[in-house]
Design a protein around this nucleic acid. Structure first.
Length: 708
DNA sequence: GTTAGGG
DNA sequence: CCCTAAC
C-alpha cells in the first residue's frame, strides 16, 4: 500500500506558515500544497520508506482536499503508521517510519539548543502574527475566528494565563453561528483527532500513537501539534520547557512539572490559533466521549492547575458555567458538521433529532444572566481578594470567562476598569444594555410607593374606560415589571433600598385613546430589567425623553387612583391583572382559557393547513377570534401535542392530571392531535416524498374534511 | 411579518 | 403567555 503523507521540509518555515495560513483559514488551496518550501508530498512505501510523491498523487491530494469529504481522507493501513510529520533538515524526506512516536522522538533528539531557540523565536512570531491576523480579521468582520477557540478556552480549566492574551481573545467576538465554515472544521477536526495533543486536557495522543494504527490526514491545515506536547516538548528539559513557556506566555514559571509545562505550552500555542474543537461530544447535555477523561483530568486539577501560583481551584460554579457553556456551543458545531460524529457513533440518533430542530443561539438573556452570575461571582471573589490578595488569580479567571461570553452575541465588547488585587485591569465585560424598550424611571415610581425603598411596588393602572375595552383587542393589558438585580457591591451602595428591589407596575389598558400605547399596541406589558447600575445612571444621567414616558403617564394619569391601587390586588372587576384560579394559582386576568370549541377549531385548522401554518390557520379558522394570535395557536398546539403524547400511553380517558384546573381535553381530540402530529412528523423528515406532503400538510387549498 | 422554541 | 432568534 502506498500512502501519501505530508512532510514538512522546513520546520521553521512551516511554523510561519502555520501562523499565517491558520489565521486566514484558507484551506486546501493548491498553491499551498505545492509550496515548494513548506510542503513536500511524499509517498509512503509499503516498507515504510518515504519517496517523493508524483505529480499525480499531488493532484489527487488536492482533489481530496477540495472534496468536502476530505475530513476523513485518512489512510489507515494496517500496520502502517503515517503521520503529519516533520522531517527537519532533511529535504530528502527519507525516514524510517517505524512509528510516529519513534520518529518524532528521533526528530526531537535532533533538536539541539539552537534549534530550540529558533523555534522559540518562531513561537513568538507566530503569536504575534496570529494576533495581528485576528485583529485584522476582526476589522474586516471575517467570521473565521472559530468559536472553537472559545471552547478551547473554557475547556481547559485553568485560565488565568489567558488573561495575558485577553486582547487576542477579544478578536474573537464573532457571532457564533458564523464561526464554522463548513469545510474547515472537517479538516481541522480530523486533524485534531489525529494529533490528539490538544491543549492541556488531552492525553489522547499517547494512546493514539501507542494504539498502533495511527492515522493521518493529508491536509494543509497548519498543525501546531507539531509543536506540542508529545512531539516537540516531549524531550525538553525542564529548563527548556521554562524557556518555551516564557516565550509562549510572556511570563516566567517555576513549575517543575514537565507534564504541566508541556500542556500549558501546547495550550498556549493552541489558543493562539484557529483550533478545531470537538474533543467534546455533547450527549444528553453532558460532556462525554472524547472529552470524558480529559474533562475529568481537568477537574481533578492535576493537569490544569498551576501549581506554584495556584491556590486557585475552579470553584464549582465556574466549572458548572463552563460546562454549561459547552452545551451551548459545540452542539451547534456538531449540528453543522454531522460528520464529526463519525467516530462517536453512539449519539448519532440524537444528532439527527436535533438537526431537525431549528438551532437557536443562546439568547441574550441567557448570556446576560450568565454574565451576571459571573459578574457577581467574580465580585464576591474580589471581596475575598481584599483579605487574601494571593487569590487574585481567581478573580482573573472569572473575568476571563466574561470575555468568553461576549462573542456569542457579537455584542460590543466594553471593558471596565476593575480593580484586581490593587491593579487596574481593563476587564472586558458584557455591557448589559437593557433590552427592548427604554427603561422607565423607577425612581419616580418609587416615590409613589409609600414604603419608599420598595421591596416591591405594584401599581395597578386602572382602566379609565373599562367598558370600552374591546374584548378582541388582541393585546391586552400587560405587566410592566421591573426588577433590580443587585449586582456589584459598590453599585448596591448606590441603591439605598438595598437588595431585591422589585417594582411591578401594572398598567391597565385604557378604553379610550387618550393614553397612547407605548409601542403601538395598547397597554402592552412593559417589562424592563434593570440593574442598580441603571438606577445609578438615572440619578446622574439625563433620562431619555421617553424613558419615563409610560410610567410617568401611568402615574400621572392614574393620579390617586393608581396609588390606591398599589399593592391592592383588587379583583373586584376586570381591572385587575391577575385572577386567582380555583386551585389557588393566579392567572393573568385576561388570559383566555381555550374553550373546547377553540381547541377543536385549532385541531381542524392544523389538519387542514398543517401545523406551522399558524397565520394561515389564524386567518382562516380563527378569523373571529381576534384575541387568538397565531402564536397563541402555535402555543396551544404545542400544549396539545404535549398532552396527547403524555397521555396516550396510559390511555386514560382524560388527562391524568385533572388538578390542572385547566379544561380537560377530551381524549378523542388528543388522539386526533397525536395522529396529526404523527402524520406530519413523518412528512417532514423526507422532503422527497411529496405525495404524503401533499396529502397532509401542503395543499392548503385542498379542503379536507376536518376531523371533527 | 411569521414561525419555532425556550422561559 | 412572553420573549427572542431564525426565517
Amino acid at each position: 500500500m502506498e500512502t501519501v503523507v505530508e512532510v514538512e521540509g522546513n520546520d521553521e518555515a512551516k511554523l510561519k506558515e502555520c501562523g499565517i495560513r491558520n489565521s486566514t483559514s484558507s484551506l486546501s488551496s493548491p498553491k499551498q500544497i505545492s509550496d515548494p518550501v513548506v510542503y513536500k508530498l511524499v509517498r509512503l512505501e509499503g516498507d515504510g520508506r518515504i519517496v517523493p510523491a508524483t505529480d499525480d498523487e499531488l493532484m489527487e491530494v488536492e482533489s481530496l482536499l477540495i472534496d468536502d469529504k476530505c475530513q476523513m481522507h485518512i489512510v489507515a493501513d494496517p500496520g502502517q503508521t503515517v503521520g503529519c510529520i516533520s522531517n527537519e533538515g532533511s529535504s530528502s524526506g527519507i525516514a524510517q517510519l517505524e512509528s510516529l512516536e519513534g520518529l518524532l522522538q528521533s526528530r526531537n533528539k535532533e533538536a539541539g539548543p539552537d534549534k530550540l531557540n529558533a523555534r522559540l523565536e518562531y513561537i513568538k512570531e507566530i503569536l504575534q502574527k496570529v494576533k495581528e491576523e485576528q485583529r485584522l480579521r476582526l476589522a474586516c468582520g471575517s467570521p473565521y475566528c472559530s468559536s472553537a477557540y472559545l471552547i478551547v478556552d473554557s475547556q481547559c480549566c485553568d485560565q488565568h494565563d489567558k488573561l495575558l492574551h485577553i486582547d487576542a481573545k477579544l478578536q474573537c467576538e464573532i457571532p457564533l453561528q458564523e464561526t464554522v465554515p463548513s469545510l474547515a472544521p472537517s479538516l481541522s477536526e480530523s486533524h485534531f483527532n489525529q494529533s490528539g495533543s490538544f491543549g492541556e486536557c488531552s492525553h489522547s495522543s499517547d494512546k493514539l500513537v501507542a494504539g498502533g494504527s495511527t492515522l493521518s490526514v493529508v491536509t494543509t491545515k497548519p498543525d501546531f501539534s507539531k509543536l506540542k506536547g508529545e512531539i516537540c516538548l516531549d524531550n525538553l528539559s525542564i529548563k527548556e520547557l521554562h524557556e518555551t513557556f516564557k516565550a509562549t506566555f510572556g511570563r516566567e514559571t517555576t513549575v517543575k512539572d514537565k507534564q504541566w509545562l508541556k500542556r500549558r505550552i501546547s495550550m498556549g500555542l493552541t489558543n493562539s490559533c484557529d483550533v478545531s474543537v470537538t474533543s467534546f461530544i455533547i450527549k444528553d447535555n453532558k460532556l462525554v466521549k472524547k472529552g470524558n477523561e480529559e474533562i475529568s483530568n481537568c477537574m481533578d486539577g492535576s493537569y490544569a492547575e498551576d501549581p506554584p501560583i495556584g491556590n486557585q481551584k475552579d470553584s464549582p460554579t465556574s466549572l458548572v458555567s463552563q460546562l454549561d457553556y459547552h452545551q451551548v456551543v459545540p452542539e451547534k458545531i456538531r449540528l453543522e458538521n454531522p460528520n464529526l460524529d463519525d467516530n462517536s457513533g453512539s449519539d448519532d440518533h440524537q444528532t439527527e433529532q436535533r438537526a431537525a430542530k431549528r438551532v437557536r443561539k443562546p439568547t441574550k438573556r441567557y448570556i446576560e444572566e450568565l454574565s451576571e452570575v459571573e459578574s457577581k461571582e467574580s465580585n464576591g471573589r474580589l471581596m475575598n481578594l481584599a483579605k487574601n490578595p494571593e487569590h487574585g488569580l481567581i478573580s482573573l479567571k472569572s473575568h476571563v470567562r466574561l470575555v468568553r461570553n461576549v462573542p456569542l452575541d457579537g455584542r460590543t465588547v466594553v471593558t471596565r476598569l476593575d480593580s484586581l488585587g490593587g491593579y487596574g485591569i481593563q476587564v472586558p465585560c458584557v455591557s448589559r444594555v437593557r433590552r427592548s424598550r427604554p427603561r422607565k424611571n423607577f425612581m419616580a415610581l418609587l416615590k409613589f410607593n409609600p414604603s419608599g425603598m420598595g421591596m416591591g411596588a405594584t401599581l395597578v393602572k386602572k382602566s379609565l374606560g373599562d367598558h370600552s375595552f374591546p374584548p378582541d383587542d388582541g393585546k391586552e393589558s400587560r405587566v410592566l415589571k421591573a426588577s433590580f438585580t443587585p449586582e456589584h457591591v459598590h453599585h448596591q451602595k448606590l441603591n439605598p433600598s438595598g437588595m431585591g428591589m422589585e417594582a411591578t407596575l401594572v398598567k391597565k389598558a385604557l378604553g379610550d385613546h387618550s393614553f397612547p400605547p407605548d409601542d403601538g399596541k395598547e397597554s402592552r406589558v412593559l417589562k424592563a430589567s434593570s440593574t442598580p447600575e441603571h438606577v445609578h445612571h438615572k440619578f446622574i444621567g439625563v433620562p431619555e425623553k421617553d424613558k419615563q414616558f409610560s410610567v410617568m403617564r401611568a402615574i400621572g394619569l392614574g393620579h390617586n387612583t393608581e396609588l390606591k391601587c398599589i399593592n391592592s390586588s383588587r379583583d373586584s372587576d376586570d381591572n385587575v391583572v391577575t385572577v386567582p384560579t380555583p386551585k389557588g394559582g393566579i392567572r393573568r386576568k385576561h388570559h383566555r382559557a381555550w374553550t373546547l370549541s377553540e381547541v377543536m377549531k385549532l385541531v381542524e385548522g392544523v389538519s387542514r393547513y398543517g401545523a406551522g401554518r399558524w397565520s394561515e390557520i389564524k386567518r382562516l379558522a380563527f378569523a373571529s377570534y381576534s384575541y387568538r394570535t397565531s402564536v397563541d395557536l402555535k402555543d396551544k398546539w404545542r400544549n396539545l401535542l404535549k398532552a396527547s403524547l403524555a397521555q396516550t400511553p396510559q390511555d386514560n380517558g382524560m388527562n391524568s392530571r385533572k388538578s390542572t384546573g385547566a379544561m380537560p381535553i377530551p381524549a378523542p381530540i388528543l388522539l386526533k392531535v397525536r395522529e396529526l402530529a404523527e402524520m406530519q412528523a413523518q412528512v417532514l423528515p423526507n422532503l422527497s416524498s411529496t405525495k404524503i406532503a401533499g396529502s397532509t400538510r401542503k395543499n392548503v387549498h385542498e379542503k379536507q374534511t376536518g376531523f371533527l
